[in-house]
Computed example of a mutant assay.
Amino acid sequence: MSNTRASQTTTNEVLHGEDLGHGNSPAAWTCVFVMMLGAIVSCIGFAIANSIVFWAGIVVIAAGLVVGWAMKKAGYGVGGSKLKNQH
């Protein structure tokens, strides 16, 4: 039997009141849009059994990550210098 009680809290407890920052920024939305476009292209390539179209979609997905990262570095990420509604 353990001597610990269920009501004890630890230092790793999640605080439900803190803002998680879900990435509502132009950089995040652009990244997601480009990656979704790449996923659609890749799925079409898979469905028609065309490996060139499939891998082109994978390249577009990777490009979406790079575009999102570049936009974040340029100040269009959450709390970025180019956004008007900074917290």
Rank of each mutant, 00 (worst) to 15 (best):
M1S: 13
M1F: 11
S2R: 07
S2A: 14
N3Y: 11
N3M: 11
N3D: 12
T4D: 13
R5P: 08
A6S: 13
S7N: 12
S7V: 12
S7Y: 09
Q8I: 09
Q8A: 12
Q8R: 09
T10K: 06
T10I: 14
T11V: 12
T11C: 07
N12H: 08
E13A: 14
V14Y: 10
V14W: 08
V14D: 07
L15V: 14
L15G: 06
L15H: 10
L15D: 15
H16Q: 08
G17C: 02
E18D: 12
E18V: 15
D19Q: 07
D19W: 04
D19I: 11
D19H: 05
L20W: 04
L20N: 09
L20R: 06
G21N: 14
H22L: 11
H22I: 08
H22D: 11
G23Y: 03
G23A: 07
G23E: 05
G23K: 01
N24D: 15
S25P: 08
S25I: 05
P26G: 12
A27F: 03
A27K: 03
W29I: 05
W29N: 13
T30V: 13
C31T: 00
C31F: 00
V32N: 04
V32F: 03
F33R: 00
F33W: 00
F33K: 01
M35G: 02
M35R: 02
M36Q: 01
L37F: 05
L37N: 05
G38R: 01
A39S: 15
I40A: 15
I40L: 15
V41S: 04
I44G: 08
G45H: 02
F46S: 15
A47V: 05
I48M: 13
I48F: 10
S51T: 09
S51P: 03
I52N: 10
V53N: 07
F54V: 00
W55E: 09
W55A: 06
W55L: 12
W55P: 02
W55M: 12
G57V: 04
I58A: 10
I58W: 03
I58G: 10
I58K: 02
V59A: 15
V59R: 01
V59I: 11
V60R: 01
V60I: 15
V60H: 00
V60K: 00
I61R: 00
I61D: 05
I61V: 15
I61W: 05
I61A: 09
A62E: 06
A63F: 10
G64F: 01
G64D: 06
G64S: 07
G64K: 01
G64P: 11
L65R: 02
L65K: 02
L65A: 13
V67C: 05
G68A: 06
G68L: 03
G68R: 00
W69G: 05
A70L: 13
A70C: 11
A70T: 11
K72A: 11
K72L: 03
A74Q: 09
G75Q: 09
G75K: 04
G75F: 06
Y76F: 15
G77F: 00
G77S: 07
G77E: 05
V78C: 10
G79D: 14
G79Q: 10
S81Y: 06
S81D: 15
S81W: 06
K82V: 04
K82C: 13
K82W: 02
L83E: 14
L83C: 10
L83F: 00
K84C: 07
K84V: 11
N85E: 14
Q86I: 08
Q86C: 08
Q86N: 13
H87R: 12
